[in-house]
Design a binder for these strands. Structure first.
Lengths: 148, 148
DNA sequence: ACTCCAGTTGCAATCGAGTCGCATCTGAGC
DNA sequence: GCTCAGATGCGACTCGATTGCAACTGGAGT
């Protein structure tokens, strides 16, 4: 299930420039981590990784930057079915939405892109006259291995 | 967008009996609230309503009962896109899953049942060989009125 | 290069949802 | 009724996230 994994690198920074958002040393570190992360960072991991690039980054700056990114629709916030506690996970918003599946057996997170999902969103927009800004489909269950 | 709103009343209590789960005064109050609630109760509201039926109900009992209901697959846990803070919302699990739409303008929560959603879940189960236990599709955006 | 200030930051205190340990209590099977 | 596994209330606690505030800084204007 390949995904359109990487947009242009530096894209988040570019967005900031376009929108006239001030670029600080700390934000640069945080954005770089977001851009290069494999996936599914929570705030604590993001903080730790960002501090390796700039030791001065503070927890509250991470949260404030995440809120900023969310407000601009540049990242998605995930729960991953609360498989590991109550916190949230973040990933760059890519071109296509994808479904997150969390295995209740082994904790693995899988992703899936589906035309039917796109069709479903189209139906919601049309039938409910609802303008979709953000959507999140999370599924909990058991992967092939854990189903045996 | 009509929903299969009400199952047989007292259904949650019946489930408890079937499964040999002890029925206490406090649980009776909490289940009654869950059964008669319109929808989308958070833990604090559930506590307040349950205390009107039985003043002795404690916050931790509400949380413990919610956890129990979740474990037995009798309720669904929702975030409703965190439109009102970080807490969770609960509703009885009905026959058919439905989509939750949260309006970022007016805060209204809408629901929608779709065959395409069922088809999508079928696709996930087949293509990913993933056995679905619970699924949650939440959409944030703007309703017809707020879109104007 | 210098100034300026709105916007940003670090820090520490705080909030609030949810959890836990423990002594006490109680439902339901005998 | 007795009994005791399981449930409860209470208070302390955890932990993710937020906030108030004084100090700092990016970058636009000169």
């Amino acid at each position: 299930m390949p995904l359109p994994q990487t947009e242009m690198p530096g894209r988040l920074q570019a967005h900031f420039a376009e929108r006239g958002i001030r670029m600080t040393q700390q934000r640069r570190a945080i954005l770089r981590v977001m851009e290069t992360a494999n996936k599914h960072l929570d705030a604590a991991h993001l903080l730790r990784k960002a501090q390796k690039l700039d030791a001065s980054v503070d927890r509250s700056t991470v949260y404030r930057t995440l809120k900023l990114l969310k407000r601009h629709g540049l990242i998605d916030e995930l729960d991953l079915m609360h498989i590991n506690g109550e916190g949230h996970y973040y990933e760059r918003k890519l071109n296509r939405d994808h479904i997150h599946m969390a295995c209740l057996g082994c904790g693995k997170i899988m992703e899936f892109v589906s035309d039917i999902f796109e069709k479903l969103k189209g139906q919601v927009e049309k039938d409910c006259r609802f303008r979709i800004v953000v959507s999140r489909l999370e599924i909990g269950g058991y992967c092939a291995e854990c189903s045996k």
